[in-house]
Amino acid sequence: MTGHIFAQQAVNGLVLGSVYGLIAVGYTMVYGIIGMINFAHGEIYMIAAYLTAIFLAGLTLLGLQSPPLAILLVLAATIACTALYGWSVERIAYRPLRHANRLAPLISAIGISLILQNYVRLSQGARTQGIPSILDGGFHLFASGPDAFVRLTHAQLLIVVTAIISMFLLHFFIARTAMGRACRAVQQDRVMASLLGVNTDRVIAIVFVLGAGMAAVAGVLVTLNYGSFDFFIGFVAGIKAFTAAVLGGIGSLPGAMLGGVVLGLAESFFSGFVNTDYKDVFAFSLLVLVLIFKPSGLLGVPEVEKV
């Protein structure tokens, strides 16, 4: 029986962690390339949730019946729109302040975050919204009795699988393509990259777009799974994902994913075995401990550089 609860919490934690990881990637990439925390990133996730509902409603109106096709179309459309939001945030809040005092872009990003929240509140209403579930059912794993099984819903499976595919694609882009190489060059030495002919403004914009796209994947998946959202969900999700990014080592892509999974599992086990009310306290305590004993995060390595 305890074994089943344990396994169930592991499944739940993995699902939660995948979502944190997807959002954390955006924080870690933007931090890696311009050394700043994009405080508007959580709102991008929130907007993706609303877009999911809007596109899903639109497709239903058009008479689309097949859930897999609907999910695929919603995912593509949401990523495209959200990428535009990510690009705009960089263009409006960051690029004009590229050579300003370090605090200035931080404050303008907080401003953008408030603007996006209130823009959604005004245009969509302040109430919690919902969509009907289009992904019902699931599997009963390790079933050994009427109450002894581990439940994995189709939506949860979709979250984990999509998260893994997205991370793989992102990793491929960064590690293997010429554009990804340019991203890494800008991250390691922005001035040198521009001396060699890299348009750094374009690379930074692409990083914002990629981060927004990953947050969009998270937004779509969570909305399909839970079905409800409001204009404020970006705040908590953002803080948690930011924590995951720092936990894994900010600036490191695998670190963001690992940090997300560790945070998700920690929260899930703590809720399952100790207390649900204090799960956030536990999650943030974990962060404090990691930062005390390994300040660069789990996978963050101080750069080796010979002079």
Partner: peptide
């Protein structure tokens, strides 16, 4: 970023190679 394409290249003070990339990737850059 437009100047490299015009035929100027700089070997800067302190070399400024990309330490986290391989030698081959540095050359490709």
């Amino acid at each position: 970023h437009q100047l490299a394409g015009l035929g100027m290249a700089l070997v800067p003070e302190g070399r400024r190679i990309f330490p986290g990339m391989t030698v081959a990737e540095n050359l490709a850059m």
